[in-house]
Amino acid sequence: MPKLPYAEIARIEERRLAVSVAAVVACAEPIAGGWMAFDGEGSWGNFAVGLGLDGPVSGEDLDRLVAFYAARGAEPQIQVCPFAHGSLVRGLADRGFVLREFENVLARELAPDEDLRALASYGGPGELEIVRIDPGDEAQVRVFIEIATSGFRPADAPISPVLFEITRRVVAHPGCDSYLALVNGEPAGGGSVEISGEGAALFGASVLPRFRERGIQQALIARRLERVREQGRLLACISASPGIPTERNAMRLGFFMAYSKGIFTRRSESPEAPA
């Protein structure tokens, strides 16, 4: 059993996410204890998160959320934590929001003396090295972005300018560290870790297809967990769609299912807010 209550893990992670996304997008505003963010058409940074953790969410706040995205021509999307006040879900339903999908949040508590490198072993040919990216090295940053985003776009599809720019800002963020996995010097995978407040999150990891099934993703997880502990935090989270390889790899390395949150959206043809 975790030392921290599940509700406390959720409070730490949802607030970290809200503040961190707000710091790397083009436009963000605080709302109901969380943040709503927008970064342009097609960006993954277009969502609201962290609402309702401190108490009821007013109808005025939800109307403001709808207006925020309508003014930017975007479909409102909000991540709803199961520990948020019930007024949030009720208010969203009244405004035509519907549940689109779930996202699992996995957590791991770190022991001060745990041998984290022993968690994963590389099982392929050649030598594996994991290096931390220097945000000031433009060439290295470009290689990292190309590799780390490869699993989030169709095979052989070029990276979009929107995805490139927000990933560049993430890499440059002072609370973020990014790592590139090299096999005999050849880029094979990459991932980032962001440390803020009381916790940290591992995210944005990809391994190129020809290097998969060798333990590279697990090695990237282990190295980033080391970084979390180096920075004085003992809680790390990973968010993933249910059942994907990221979730399985994390659980093999000691992560547990902390909570599942709903992703709600409201289409433009949805009814207006109740009078």
Rank of each mutant, 00 (worst) to 15 (best):
M1S: 13
L53P: 01
I130E: 03
D54H: 11
A107M: 06
G243H: 10
P161G: 04
A118S: 15
R16I: 07
P158W: 10
L128D: 07
A28H: 07
G86C: 00
A93H: 07
E247G: 15
D61G: 02
L253V: 05
L182N: 13
G151L: 05
K261I: 02
A188S: 10
A18V: 06
D94H: 02
R266L: 07
E127C: 02
L116G: 08
L225C: 09
M1C: 11
P158Q: 07
C237Q: 09
P242T: 14
S58Q: 04
V49R: 05
V98Y: 07
W35Y: 15
E75A: 03
G136I: 03
E29D: 10
G42I: 08
E60A: 15
G73D: 08
I31S: 03
R72I: 11
V193F: 05
A18S: 15
S239G: 14
E198A: 15
A48E: 03
F255E: 06
V21R: 09
F97L: 01
F144A: 13
L62D: 01
Q217F: 10
E127Y: 00
A10E: 14
G124V: 15
L51M: 14
E146V: 06
P30E: 14
I147L: 12
E101W: 00
V171T: 09
A139K: 13
M36H: 09
D39F: 10
W44I: 09
A172S: 13
F38D: 03
E226L: 12
P158N: 09
P271M: 00
T167K: 06
A222H: 04
V162E: 07
I159H: 13
G175K: 11
G59Y: 03
V141A: 13
A67C: 00
P158L: 15
A205E: 13
I12V: 14
D115T: 03
G136W: 00
R224C: 06
L235H: 02
V170Y: 02
A201S: 15
F102L: 02
V21P: 01
A84G: 01
G124Y: 09
A70C: 02
E226Y: 00
D61M: 05
G215S: 07
A222K: 04
G191A: 07
P56T: 06
N249R: 07
A188P: 08
L116W: 10
F256I: 13
S43D: 14
A18L: 04
L180D: 07
E29N: 06
G34A: 11
L88K: 03
S241P: 02
G42N: 12
